[in-house]
Design a protein around this nucleic acid. Structure first.
Lengths: 164, 164
DNA sequence: CGCCGAGTGTTATGTTATAACAATGCGGCG
DNA sequence: CGCCGCATTGTTATAACATAACACTCGGCG
């Protein structure tokens, strides 16, 4: 499914890439997990655990309990298929399944979509800075809030129209 | 009070710097806020809202309700005296009161203490990277988990002892 | 006085996450 | 087949984090 916000990510290919990765790694992609995968595929924006819970309940036609969802999320997180966005308490597809990711997350405050970019310069700068402090890095999170390309453009043209 | 973890930050001078900043800015440092300040002064590690709540209740000798604590935290956050650490749901003193801070937080998984460092290289790399993506930054959060200098050293000497 | 606004108190509730234990399903193996 | 062991899922309850809504106090000021 195409992204609703006009950003250029594609959750649908993500789902199929996750399926491949499960096969390669021998990880079980059970019906439950597949359904959760589908739910992420249909959403351009990060999803909260309880949003997934509700959608899952709706699709299954019966009430699903929180641990079911959190266990499924844990599975995807452990395999590196999903990221947890701490500043939103939400979860989003990892767009770089293949390699270790110290990606930077750009979260649009207007359309709610998130984009994950990898930047060697950022990674290196953080590693250098931590090394200077004598700190042994294990996990790094970079989350930025702001306006994505499209929303920034829209806002500009809106204010231009207001001036005219 | 000295830091319990051996790291080289000093929450006590932080409290007095906050007091100065309140005077300069005309912000009211009420008894409640002062008590919360004292609680942070006595702790080397970030504090959760409910930890503050319990400590506050203990010191006041009567039960304090969550909104009281959260409002106080909001006051400090808005004035830039505290940071919220999203990955811990906890709050820590801002060690750079004077200037806008896009600091990077180093959180030790062993002793729990956190250190805030400012690094122009990191800031610049993130700004450049976001600009490349056409993303208008508004707020950036960098949180790293790992081992602080002291804990990394301790771990090293422990494993050396194990080998011997 | 009478009003206002900042701060705090109080009650209730919303949101996010986990603990603990039971049940199911499936493959291997005697 | 019957049993075991393991991964997964179901179920119940509760913990942990956060906010909404409204009441009350108190000091400043016309």
């Amino acid at each position: 499914m195409a992204s609703a916000c006009g950003c250029d990510h594609d959750p649908a290919t993500w789902a199929s890439r996750v399926k491949d990765a499960c096969l390669r790694q021998g990880a079980q992609l059970t019906p439950l997990r597949r359904r959760v995968l589908d739910i992420f595929s249909g959403s351009a924006a990060p999803l909260g655990a309880y949003a997934i819970l509700e959608e899952l309940s709706r699709r299954e036609g019966k009430q699903v309990a929180p641990p079911t969802v959190y266990r499924t999320l844990d599975f995807f997180l452990e395999h590196g298929f999903l990221h947890k966005i701490e500043s939103l308490n939400a979860y989003a597809p990892c767009e770089h399944l293949d390699h270790a990711h110290h990606g930077m997350l750009l979260i649009c405050e207007s359309c709610g979509c998130s984009e994950e970019i990898e930047d060697a310069g950022v990674t290196r700068a953080i590693a250098d800075s931590a090394a200077d402090a004598g700190f042994a890095l294990r996990r790094v999170m970079v989350e930025a809030q702001g306006l994505c390309r499209k929303c920034a453009r829209d806002r500009l043209s809106a204010s231009a129209a207001a001036v005219a």
